[in-house]
């Protein structure tokens, strides 16, 4: 177990280093920087801009900058936001909390409703819930989040039932987009497990009811769903970016978009890395759970 996880952690760290190097390489190739706007302002002395660039280390070659940044990052110093003139970690910390709160709430809501509905559908194939979920999946899948966002923002602006920039509005916009993908997979996994030959064999031996579901069907259905666990969180984070920016929830989404437009380099880098780290952590957690639950992974082939 330990060795397996250690290997995965090492892989994830390596991946993060590659991603950060990639970001720095891209930045080196990119035209213009944060000071481009200042430079076009005739009232600003070019020498002053050069001083600023030197102070922030932007005049040094990219590999040196990367080395300095990496050495700092190991100690928890991830650079400075040029637009806000404060350490990136300080700038991001409260926003990351807000984003994570929103994303995890939507994600948890999505999983719970998906699992409950999928179970209802699998318990009675062809029943009302089965038909309802099938309809729900195909409907929600084709409704773009932006449509929901527009409608809810409209409702919020017109009636004041929902507050713009509030948690309720953001969650209501984000959650319905999470459900269909999860529901579709949960439904397929449970159905497949319930129709498997070993379940039939168990039935033939007289095992039925709760015991059949808990001991036979759930463990078999869990496998594909756990792999989806980490990945689905990444999906929620991606969707959350748009939802935050549209509904005005003060998470990392709006900040990230601003920092791209403003060429606030270290903020872009750190947010990118943070996303990669979250995704890696999600996949790692899924791997660990699979390893703990699925005996096939533990026995060497």
């Amino acid at each position: 177990m330990i060795r397996f996880l250690a290997g995965r952690v090492a892989q994830a760290v390596l991946l993060l280093i590659v991603v950060s190097a990639g970001v720095f390489a891209l930045a080196a190739l990119a035209p213009g920087d944060y000071f481009a706007a200042l430079r076009s302002d005739p009232r600003v002395d070019p020498a002053a801009i050069e001083t600023l660039r030197t102070r922030y280390g932007l005049d040094r070659p990219v590999e040196v900058r990367y080395g300095v940044w990496l050495a700092g990052a190991v100690r928890g110093d991830f650079g400075v936001s040029l637009a806000y003139n404060m350490p990136v970690t300080e700038l991001l910390a409260p926003r990351v909390g807000k984003s994570l709160a929103l994303a995890s709430a939507a994600w948890a809501l999505g999983w719970v409703s998906a699992l409950v509905l999928a179970l209802g559908a699998a318990l009675r194939p062809g029943g009302l819930i089965d038909k309802l979920t099938s309809w729900l999946v195909s409907t929600l899948l084709v409704l773009p989040e932006l449509l929901l966002a527009s409608v809810l923002v409209l409702v919020a602006a017109r009636t004041g039932i929902l507050r713009l920039g509030g948690f309720g509005l953001a969650l209501l916009t984000l959650a319905p987009g999470v459900v269909p993908v999860l529901l579709r997979h949960a439904r397929a996994a449970l159905k497949e497990a319930a129709e498997a030959t070993f379940v039939e064999a168990a039935r033939a031996r007289g095992i039925a009811g709760r015991r059949l579901w808990v001991m036979y069907i759930f463990p078999a259905a869990a496998n594909p769903l756990i792999s989806l666990f980490g990945m689905s969180f990444a999906g929620v984070l991606s969707a959350s970016l748009v939802v935050e920016a549209v509904t005005g929830w003060p998470g990392i989404g709006p900040l990230f978009l601003d920092s791209i437009a403003g060429r606030d380099f270290y903020v872009v880098t750190v947010v990118t890395l943070l996303m990669a780290a979250l995704l890696a952590a999600g996949n790692l957690a899924a791997d660990a759970m699979l390893y703990a639950l699925d005996p096939r992974l533990r026995t060497p082939q």
């Binding site: 991946l15 993060l16 590659v18 991603v19 990639g22 970001v23 891209l26 930045a27 190739l29 990119a30 035209p31 213009g32 990444a234 999906g235 984070l237 991606s238 969707a239 970016l241 748009v242 990230f256 978009l257 920092s259 791209i260 437009a261 060429r263 872009v268 947010v271 990118t272 996303m275 990669a276 995704l279 890696a280």
Partner: peptide, 22 residues
């Protein structure tokens, strides 16, 4: 491929877009 999948898709697209002229 793993590097391309290391980021949520939209963040990847935006992250790369960040370094192209506006």
């Amino acid at each position: 491929g793993e590097v391309c999948l290391a980021l949520p898709w939209l963040y990847l697209l935006l992250g790369v877009r960040a370094f192209l002229p506006l």
